[in-house]
Simulated scan of single mutants.
Amino acid sequence: MSNIESRTIAFIFARGGSKGLPGKNIKPLAGKPLIAHSIDIAKACPFIETVIVSTDDEAIAAVAREYGAEVPFMRPPELATDTAPEWLSWRHAIEWTMREKGHFDHFVSLPATSPFRNVEDVRACVQTLEEDSATDIVITVKNADRSPYFNMVVIDSDGRADLVIKPQGEVSRRQDAPAVYDMTTVAYAARPQFVLRAQRLFDGKVKTVNIPPERALDIDTPYDFMLAQAIAQSRFAS
């Protein structure tokens, strides 16, 4: 894998108002706050210049600074509500960074809720973006556990179920259905100018990096956190 020479800055977007798992971004996992796992990976990437945390929460900001991230601004309240698209927070962070630190080539988002990624996962995303000038953004995916062609259904107003997507021809085995993937929150790598001009991720040319499921957990609920604790205990015990 070739060296990444362009200017790359990592961002972690962590607001304080989580309802599914209150305080999740600084909840302890394997001996350190959840957000610290993302900060540590960003700092371990030799191709990342710095890591900036965007938050509206002073407690998250304090933890982020303790673990070596920059928190040079607080996220405006209107970008930290339950309904505010994170895309707008991406824009806000990019605009601040370009104004204060100058032009950079690659924007990387490393959500705090994905603690099991590794450096190579992040490198693969940035490398994929760097090697194809036509690509606007790279997302991470994993092989889907369920398929809209085979075992995912919608229910109509009469209570009758049907496949989300009806395959053409007969599909009697899952292996015969088209391959589908689940998006993960392991990493996003984008060209800053794309984020500034687009309205959403799929407005651009999107490529993917496939992540094994053991590194792709996204923590959103208490059950997710219990699973993360089990994974962490197994990983650090081995």
Rank of each mutant, 00 (worst) to 15 (best):
V71M: 10
Q168Y: 13
V71W: 11
R215E: 10
A198L: 09
A216C: 14
I60E: 04
Q127M: 10
A30N: 08
T55N: 00
D162K: 13
I94S: 06
V141E: 06
A61Y: 06
F194D: 05
M183Y: 13
A161L: 09
Y149P: 03
P148A: 00
G16W: 10
S238Y: 13
R200Q: 04
G102N: 12
V138N: 00
S18G: 15
N151R: 04
T50N: 02
A10I: 06
D132F: 06
I52F: 08
I137E: 06
W87T: 00
M74G: 02
A61V: 07
Q127T: 08
K24L: 02
V126S: 06
V122N: 00
Y67W: 12
P76Y: 09
A112V: 00
Q229E: 15
I48H: 06
E58K: 07
V141Q: 10
F47L: 04
V53C: 04
E95Q: 13
M1A: 13
R146V: 14
W90P: 11
R91L: 09
D218Y: 13
N143D: 13
V53D: 02
I35Y: 11
N3Q: 13
E86I: 15
V71C: 01
I137G: 04
R146P: 01
Q229T: 11
L129K: 05
P77Q: 15
R191P: 02
T83V: 14
P111E: 12
R91E: 07
A62K: 08
K32P: 01
Q168V: 14
I39Y: 10
K24Y: 00
F236G: 09
T184W: 06
N25V: 08
T81R: 12
M74K: 15
A112R: 01
S133T: 11
F116Q: 09
D182F: 10
N118W: 03
V206P: 08
K101D: 01
V138D: 09
N151A: 09
I39T: 00
P213M: 09
G169C: 08
A144L: 14
V126Q: 03
Y67I: 07
I94F: 10
K19R: 15
L79N: 07
A10S: 13
G159C: 12
V119G: 05
V126T: 00
D56F: 02
D162V: 09
P111R: 06
E66N: 12
E86A: 14
P115C: 11
